[in-house]
Design a protein around this nucleic acid. Structure first.
Lengths: 206, 206
DNA sequence: TTCGTCATGTAATGGGTTACATGATTAC
DNA sequence: GTAATCATGTAACCCATTACATGACGAA
C-alpha cells in the first residue's frame, strides 16, 4: 500500500497553484504564503527541492513558451524557470483532491485542502469538513476529560491558556458547522432542481 | 554563542512539569498533553529520548524515594522510573523561563512558555506577551498586504479560509491585549504600593 | 557601480513521528 | 490465564528549516 507520502502538504499546494496558472518558484512561494499565510510559511529550502522532485516524477515540466530562437533559448536561459503541470500532474492533483482521509482534515493538511475546495467534488468537501469537525470534537472531548482529572490545582495562567485554546477550537467547530450547513443546503438544492426538471422553481431563502 | 538549542519545546515542558512534581515518563506525557492538548500532542517517541538526553545532561535524575532494601531496589527495578529535577535542572529551567526571545513568542514555543508563566518574572511575562502580539500584528500586516495584491481573483473558499485565519489571529491579538492590560495594571499597582510607603498616592493615567 | 530585490539552488541539521519491540500490572 | 492498560524504549524516516552560495537585473 504505502500510498506514497511523497512531499507532504507542499505537493498539493504546488500542484494546486500551478494548475491555476504556470509560475516560477519564487512567485510560487509568495502566492503560497499569501494563500496560507495565517497558518504556515514555507521557505525556499523546502520549495525548490519539492519542485525538483515533482519534476523528476514527471508531474510538472518547464514551461518555455513559443521560443523561435533555439540558440538563444539554450544560452540565455538562466534565472526564472516557469513550471506548469503535465497530464500526470493534473491526474495526481485530481487524485489528491479526491481522497477525503485524515491527511485532509488533520491540522497540517486541512488548510491546504480547503484552499482548493473549489476544485474539489462536493461530496468530498463535505466529508472533509465533517472529518475535521469530528476530529476537533474528539480533541475537545479528550481535553475536557483531562481537564476534569487535573482540575484541582491549576494556576490562573494555565487556566487562561486552556480556556483560550478551548474557545479557539469551539470557534472553529462553529465555523465548520456553518460551512457544513451551507454545503448541505447547496447539495439539497441541486438534488431538488435535478429531480424536478419540469416543475416550477420555488424560492428557498438563502 | 549558539545558545544550545537542545531539545526544542520539550525541554522546557518537561523541566517545568517535573519542577511541579516528580513523575515518570508515561504520566509526564499525559500531563503534557493535558496541559497543551489544544496546541500539540507529543508522542513517546519524542518524550523518552528527551528524558534520556536530559538525564545525560544532568538536568534530571531518577527519584528513588527512601529505599531501605538495596538488594530489592536493584532487582525489582523495572518499569516506572520517576524523574526529578537536579540543581542544574532547576537552574536551567530558571534560565529558560527568563529569556524573552523569539523562542518564547513564536508559534511553537509560546504555549509552553505561557503555561509556566506563574513561575516567570513579571517583566519577562510582559515582554513575551508583547513580543507575541507584535509578531502576530506583523503577520496580520503582511497578510493584508498580500491580500491586497492578489485581491482580484480569489474564489469564495479561499476567501472564507483567509477570513477565518484573519479573525483567529485578530482574536488572539485581542486576547493578548487584555492579558497585557492586566499585567500592566498589576505591575503599576505593585510599583505604586512600594513607592508610596509614606506619602499619599497620586494618579498618573495609564 | 553598487545596492536591493528577484531568483535558484544545496548541505547540514533538526525536531518530531510512526512503527515496532518488549515487559509489568491490573481487572476480569 | 488472558486481555487491556501501563510503562519504557529504539530505529527508520520525514518534512521542513537554516544557513549558505550564487547569479541576474533594474534603479539610484
Amino acid at each position: 500500500m504505502a500510498a506514497r507520502k511523497g512531499a507532504g502538504v507542499l505537493e498539493l499546494a504546488v500542484l494546486g497553484l500551478l494548475h491555476e496558472s504556470p509560475m516560477h518558484g519564487y512567485e510560487l512561494r509568495k502566492r503560497l504564503n499569501a494563500l496560507l499565510g495565517m497558518f504556515r510559511a514555507f521557505s525556499y529550502g523546502s520549495l525548490y527541492p519539492c519542485l525538483k522532485q515533482l519534476l523528476a516524477r514527471g508531474l510538472i515540466m518547464e514551461d518555455r513558451p513559443e521560443e523561435p530562437n533555439v540558440a538563444l533559448a539554450l544560452q540565455s536561459r538562466r534565472s526564472k524557470i516557469v513550471y506548469k503541470l503535465t497530464a500526470d500532474g493534473k491526474e495526481r492533483l485530481q487524485q489528491l483532491l479526491t481522497e477525503a482521509g485524515p491527511a485532509a482534515w488533520e491540522d497540517e493538511g486541512f488548510g491546504v485542502h480547503f484552499a482548493f475546495f473549489s476544485h474539489t467534488r462536493a461530496d468530498v468537501r463535505l466529508r472533509i469538513l465533517e472529518g475535521r469537525r469530528s476530529r476537533l470534537e474528539e480533541r475537545l472531548e479528550g481535553f475536557r476529560a483531562a481537564l476534569a482529572r487535573t482540575r484541582e490545582r491549576v494556576d490562573s495562567y494555565t487556566l487562561e491558556l486552556q480556556n483560550h485554546g478551548l474557545e479557539s477550537v469551539e470557534r472553529e467547530v462553529r465555523w465548520l458547522n456553518e460551512l457544513i450547513g451551507r454545503e448541505r443546503a447547496e447539495q439539497e438544492k441541486l438534488a431538488k432542481s435535478s429531480e424536478i426538471d419540469q416543475d416550477m422553481p420555488r424560492e428557498n431563502g438563502r
